[in-house]
Structure formats: C-alpha cells, structure tokens
C-alpha cells in the first residue's frame, strides 16, 4: 500500500533496464500484484508498466507445429483464441476454470505463472509466515490448512500454488521464455516452479530482473482426449482444492503419451512421470487411472483439515481420465455435477 514510482516500458529491453532492482516490479494485468500490494505484502519501489510492449501481445504459430503465447496476451484472449481452442482445448478449458471473466480479461499469461499462494497466513501481514518472512514460522501446519499441500511440502511451508492455467501448461510441457539483463533463455515448465524446501520464499526459478516474454506450447495438444476437472468449495470463483489436467492419445484403443498434472495439492503443478509411463499401453479404464493415481499420490500426507484431499485427488484422477474419453460432454468452468 506504499507509494511507488511508476514508469512505462515500450520494449522488452526498456523494461528489463527499468526493472533492475530487488523492489522493482513489472506490472501487466496487476490482478495479483496490486492485491498483494494493497494487503501490504509487497512493497514495490517502482512499478514498470509493461502493457505497452506490443510484441508480447500476440499468439503465433511456431515452425515445429507448436504455438507461442505472448506473455501479455490476456488469459481470456488466450482461452478463446481459435488456435488454442482447436489445438489446445485442455488449456482453454483450464484457463476458463480459473478466476472470473473480469480477472481473466486483465490477467496475462506471464503473470499467471507468478501468482503467489493463497495461504491465509501468507496473506495476513501480522501472521508469521516463512514464505513472506523467512524464519518466522508456519502457522498453517497446525492451523487452518484446508487449502494446503499434501505433496512436496516441507516443514517450512505447506502452501499450494493457486494457478489453474499452469496445471495445463505442466501437462502440455510448455516452455517459458524469459529475458533478463544477461539475455534470453528458455525454462522447461517442470523447472519453472519449485518446491518450498528450505527456501519457501522462492516460488520459482525466474531470476531477479527477468521478464517472461512468452510461453511456447509443443505441438502435442491432446485435443482429442483431454480433461480439466477442478474441485473447489463453490462451483465457480474459488481456488482448487484438487484439480486434475489429463491428456492422452489413443492408439488402437490403448493409451499413448499420457500426461496428468495436479493443482491445489502442492507448491507446484504436480506431475509424476512414472504414472504417465505406467499408463502407456493400457486401456483407458478406471482401473488404469486408479493405478496411475497410486503412483501420483505416493507419499501424500494430509494435515488436520486437508487429509480428505488424498482420497479426493485419487478419485478425481480416475474421473478426469474417464471424462477425457469424451471431451464433448464437458463445458468450460462447469463442475462435474452439472
């Protein structure tokens, strides 16, 4: 809620130059950054408005058959883009299951990757929180932890990563393109977000002063067999308790190239490659997906208020796998029971 300097950048280079400094923030949609700022959780000294960088506002086809999503394309524009709808309907549906139409109209693809957790204690500046104030403690472990992780947490932090879109991007094995003072680089999606470990204050591997410029989608889009199933405390406009993005191809009725990613259960979109390998060559049956679920949820551990998520995740993986057989029955954003 502090005051800050504000400047506009019209190119990536200009932005990177202007953004240099620990307390300087790039602002695009602002839907999470301004929320955090108003709660006194971030204290920007300077906001660099990147909305004027036109080159980051396009969706373009890549020579390899993939698609490049500009970092400044809004979530809604991406979800409703004809190429995304046709080739990556899993991504389209996943985006539309998140937030609200208003937020998706402002929120950008780049910003989506950088959302902070919705842990109650992180959001209260007066509470201890290792993510916000390293070393201060984690009240969620013995407090209200319904929203919290069952996989990959540490004794320092049991927060979850709240994005829906990123769950699909994990399943699609997207690549994040970033530019910083030392030039540009690509980050595999699986390497972008990180587990809390001893440094829960770090959500991801984006370097300080680096700007996300695009997200590249590989050619494989699982357009025929995909599903995003999100379970939450109300039918819309709530963060996932458990969500599952499923995509696979069928060859002669048997699963090939399966991808399953989970949201709402960990500090990152959760993927277990062994489970995907396990499914290969198997028929798409409840038993097959249940077997995959066992591998995905191996080592899952619940807390006082979120232990239910383990069984819920298991069942959701199975249901999502089965729903992917016939995506025509699905509508964006709709809960399974409608």
């Amino acid at each position: 809620m502090n005051n800050f300097h504000y400047t506009k950048a019209s190119s990536v280079d200009e932005a990177v130059l202007a953004g240099k400094g620990a307390e300087n923030y790039f602002i695009a949609g602002g839907t999470n950054l301004l929320d955090l700022w108003k709660y006194d959780l971030t204290h920007p000294q300077k906001m660099v408005d990147v909305n004027g960088i036109e080159e980051l506002k396009t969706i373009t086809e890549l020579p390899n058959g993939g698609l490049r999503l500009g970092a400044l394309v809004t979530n809604n524009t991406t979800a409703y883009h004809p190429l995304v709808e046709a080739r990556y309907p899993l991504l389209s549906r996943t985006i539309l299951a998140g937030a609200t139409a208003q937020i998706r109209n402002s929120a950008t693809n780049g910003g989506n990757l950088l959302q902070r957790t919705r842990c109650y204690y992180f959001y209260d500046p007066a509470s201890p929180c290792n993510k916000r104030n390293p070393g201060s403690g984690c009240p969620a472990v013995e407090g209200q932890n319904r929203l919290h992780a069952i996989l990959g947490f540490s004794d320092k932090c049991i927060a979850t990563f709240p994005s829906d879109m990123c769950v699909a991007l994990a399943a699609l094995e997207a690549v994040v393109r970033v530019t910083g003072p030392n030039g540009s680089r690509e980050i595999a999606f699986a390497d972008f977000h990180r587990l809390p470990g001893d440094r829960p204050e770090l959500d991801n591997t984006l370097g300080q002063d680096e700007l996300i410029t695009a997200i590249d989608l590989p050619p494989r889009g699982y357009a025929e067999h995909h599903n995003y199933l999100k379970l939450r405390d109300r039918n819309s406009y709530a963060f996932a308790l458990v969500s599952v993005a499923t995509g696979y191809e069928l060859e002669a009725g048997m699963i090939a190239n399966a991808r399953i990613a989970l949201g709402g259960v960990a500090h990152i979109p959760w993927r277990v490659e062994a489970a995907e390998t396990y499914l290969e060559g198997k028929a798409p049956t409840e038993a097959s997906f249940a077997g995959a679920a066992d591998l995905i949820l191996a080592g899952a551990q619940g807390f006082e208020h979120n232990a239910f998520k383990i069984e819920l995740a298991r069942r959701t993986i199975v249901r999502s796998g089965m729903m992917a057989l016939d995506p025509s029955c699905q509508r964006p954003g709709a809960p399974p029971s409608l």
Binding site: Y120, Y121, Y123, Q144, N235, S236, Y237, G333
Partner: peptide
C-alpha cells in the same frame, strides 16, 4: 478468523 476476505469466505456464486 483467517479467511477474512471474500475470496476465502465463500458466499454462493451464481453458479451455485
């Protein structure tokens, strides 16, 4: 009360 906002205090939405 830790869910002291309208994001986590769940009022019904139209879809409910």
């Amino acid at each position: 009360y830790v869910n002291d906002d309208l994001g986590e205090y769940h009022l019904p939405v139209h879809a409910d």
